[in-house]
Design a protein around this nucleic acid. Structure first.
Lengths: 199, 199
DNA sequence: CCTAAACCTTAAACTATATTAAGGGTATTT
DNA sequence: AAATACCCTTAATATAGTTTAAGGTTTAGG
């Protein structure tokens, strides 16, 4: 049994949630997407490098983060099974990235290179369509996160993170969640204590 | 001279920054986009209504905001000339919106209805393409805002807002900027004082 | 051109969150 | 199985941001 095939089947299946692919389009996936296994703590992007791949997570989990001038990491995004993770700014402009993308768990991904994705867009209308819809959904989620950031306390943000991402939150150490919420691990610890004591 | 024509010309010109439209596509804009003048404090969306239009700002300025349980407004987005403003979640799902979109200045917009935009997508590949790119760019900007929210102080966020949106920031009252940054007007006032005194 | 409403500032008291430091617990790696 | 690195918690102290209240200034709109 060919592992790569299984991965691509998962990607094909993922696209069924949008405008499903015909056989020609499915073939294109097989041609252009490459499977890669990433170890825990392995990087698929490091600051200073150009983000050359658009990445689909088949299994495992990643974090994307920036490092500030004091060396602190700030988690911008997590991505687990059936999600995409890429530094779009670097990928499309082909400029050095400011970000890191690192595996939190041993992972399997499917990756497509910039020129290959462009050729998919050009030759198959449906990929423009599907990626438009995918990113619209991600935009909506991100906008809700911004709203939370400007209007809610850390405790409220923590609770809605748990509700919104139950499949991820129980796989992540609290340090990583704190970094995503924009608070210190110590303060998250206090929030958790307050929450349990209130029950 | 026909005002509507001038507005649509501005929209056509806007699309020149992406994949420019051919004459058939330009005609579609004329058919499907409707010009509307909005007074200061006029709404193009109110909480509870379905967001029926995708809106292009020809002139003027809008804010999109949510109202929390205490009645406080939180500005999610501003949009001035040559920008789009729409509650995507409500627009695509055709569900009641949680948000308001209100004119900060007397404004002129071009609007397209949901079924008309879908027909543009279906009949003209280029609109899928262009709107994919437009929203990718908005996604990148929003992601940077999230990063700032989780990693920077209010003062830093204020400064980078001024740098990033000079054409908007000098038209907005500080109360509105404070709401966008997620701080109180009083604290913004203090930040401004500190900044000038430090110079 | 007048007036009400909106806006801006200040400051004191309060609350939310960060920092520092320390100790114990839990995984990963060797 | 031991060693090391990572993770979680607690608490005291410090800082960032809010609330309340008040007075002065600007601006939109009749």
């Amino acid at each position: 049994m060919n592992t790569e095939n299984t991965s691509v089947e998962q990607l094909i299946s993922y696209f069924k949630n949008y405008f499903p692919l015909n056989s020609k389009e499915r073939d294109e996936l097989l041609v252009h997407f490459t499977e890669r296994k990433i170890k825990r703590r392995g990087f698929i992007l490091q600051q200073g490098d150009v983000c050359r791949h658009f990445t689909f997570v088949v299994s495992g989990c990643f974090k994307m983060y920036a490092v500030d001038k004091n060396g602190k990491e700030h988690n911008i995004q997590f991505a687990a099974e059936n999600d995409w993770i890429t530094d779009l700014a670097s990928f499309y402009a082909e400029k050095p990235s400011q970000l890191y993308i690192e595996a939190i768990e041993p992972s399997v991904v499917l990756q497509i290179k910039h020129p290959d994705l462009l050729s998919l867009y050009i030759n198959h209308h449906k990929f423009d369509r599907n990626f438009r819809i995918i990113i619209e959904q991600k935009f909506i989620a991100l906008q809700n996160r911004v709203l939370q950031n400007i209007s809610s306390t850390a405790e409220e943000r923590y609770q809605s993170f748990l509700e919104q991402y139950p499949h991820i939150s129980n796989r992540l150490p609290n340090t990583q969640i704190a970094s995503y919420l924009g608070i210190t691990p110590e303060f998250l610890s206090k929030i958790r204590k307050d929450l349990t004591q209130r029950t």
